[in-house]
Simulated assay, not measured.
Amino acid sequence: MKADPAVQRRLLELADVDAELARVDHRRRTLPELAEIAEAEKVVQARKDAKVANETALGDLDREVKRQEKEIDAVRAREDRDRALLAGGTVNPKQMTDLEHELTTLERRQATLEDELLELMERREAVEGDGQHAGVELAKAEEALADAANRRDHALADLETAWVRRTDDREKLVPQFPEPLLGLYEQVRKNKGIGAALLRARRCGACRIELDRSAISRISGTAADEVVTCDECGAIMVRTAESGL
C-alpha cells in the first residue's frame, strides 16, 4: 500500500487523538469516585438497615410498655376496689381475710410490674439513644455519598468536554486519509490498540520494540510513500528524520 509521506505523518495526529480518547474512556470507567460511591452506597444501606432495626426495636418496646402500663392499671383498679370493699364495712370476717390476702398479693404484683416497667423504660431510653446515633450516622453516610456523587459528576463533565473536543478533532482529521490507509489504521487500532506510531531511533513507537538489522535494511530500501508496518504489533510505522534509517 502506498500513501503520501505527509499523509502518513498526519496519522500520528490521529493516533494522538485516539490515544487521548482511549484515556478519557478508561478514566470514565475507572474514576476513583465510582468505587467510592459503591462503598458509600453500601454504608448508607447498612445505616438505613440499622435505623429500621432500631425503629422496630423501639416499636416493640413501646408496645411492651403500653401492655405493662395497662396491666399495672388493672392491678391498681383491683386494689382500689378491694380497699373500697374493706372500707365499706359490708364484708364478713372471711371475706375480709381474703381481701387482705389479695391486697398483699396485688401489692407484690404491682411492685414487680413497676420494676419491670422501669427496666423497660431504661431499655427504651437506651434504644432511643441508639436510634439518635443511628440517625446521625445515616446522615453522615448520605452526606459522604452525595459528596462522592458530586465529585464524580464534575469529573465526568470534564471528561465529556475533553471527549467532545477530541471527537471533533478526529472528525476533522479522518477525511484527510485515503480509505485503504484509514482502513488499515482502524483495523490495527481495533486489534492492537494503537494504529500508527513514529519509528524513532529504529524502535517502533507502538510496541517499543527495537527493530533488528534485517527489518531496518528492508525498511531502508522501501520507497518513502510505501506504508510499512511493525512485524511485532502490526502498527503503521511512520518514518521521519528521527527514524534512524
Score class of each variant (00 low, 15 high):
residue 153 D to P: 06
residue 153 D to S: 15
residue 154 H to M: 15
residue 155 A to Y: 09
residue 156 L to G: 00
residue 156 L to C: 05
residue 156 L to T: 09
residue 156 L to V: 15
residue 156 L to D: 01
residue 157 A to T: 12
residue 157 A to R: 09
residue 157 A to G: 11
residue 158 D to V: 15
residue 159 L to M: 06
residue 160 E to F: 10
residue 161 T to P: 09
residue 161 T to A: 15
residue 161 T to L: 14
residue 161 T to W: 12
residue 162 A to P: 10
residue 163 W to Y: 13
residue 163 W to S: 08
residue 164 V to P: 08
residue 164 V to N: 12
residue 165 R to H: 12
residue 166 R to H: 12
residue 168 D to E: 14
residue 168 D to K: 14
residue 169 D to L: 12
residue 170 R to N: 04
residue 170 R to E: 05
residue 172 K to C: 09
residue 173 L to V: 09
residue 173 L to K: 05
residue 174 V to K: 04
residue 175 P to I: 11
residue 175 P to H: 08
residue 175 P to C: 06
residue 177 F to R: 07
residue 177 F to E: 04
residue 179 E to P: 07
residue 180 P to A: 07
residue 181 L to M: 05
residue 181 L to T: 06
residue 181 L to V: 07
residue 182 L to G: 05
residue 182 L to I: 09
residue 185 Y to S: 08
residue 185 Y to M: 07
residue 187 Q to W: 07
residue 187 Q to G: 13
residue 188 V to W: 00
residue 188 V to G: 00
residue 190 K to F: 06
residue 190 K to E: 14
residue 190 K to H: 10
residue 191 N to I: 11
residue 192 K to E: 11
residue 193 G to Y: 01
residue 194 I to V: 15
residue 195 G to T: 04
residue 195 G to Q: 02
residue 195 G to R: 00
residue 196 A to E: 02
residue 197 A to L: 03
residue 198 L to K: 05
residue 198 L to F: 03
residue 199 L to A: 01
residue 199 L to D: 00
residue 201 A to R: 12
residue 202 R to Y: 02
residue 204 C to D: 01
residue 204 C to Q: 00
residue 205 G to D: 01
residue 206 A to P: 02
residue 207 C to H: 00
residue 210 E to V: 09
residue 212 D to Y: 03
residue 212 D to E: 07
residue 212 D to N: 10
residue 213 R to C: 10
residue 214 S to P: 05
residue 214 S to I: 07
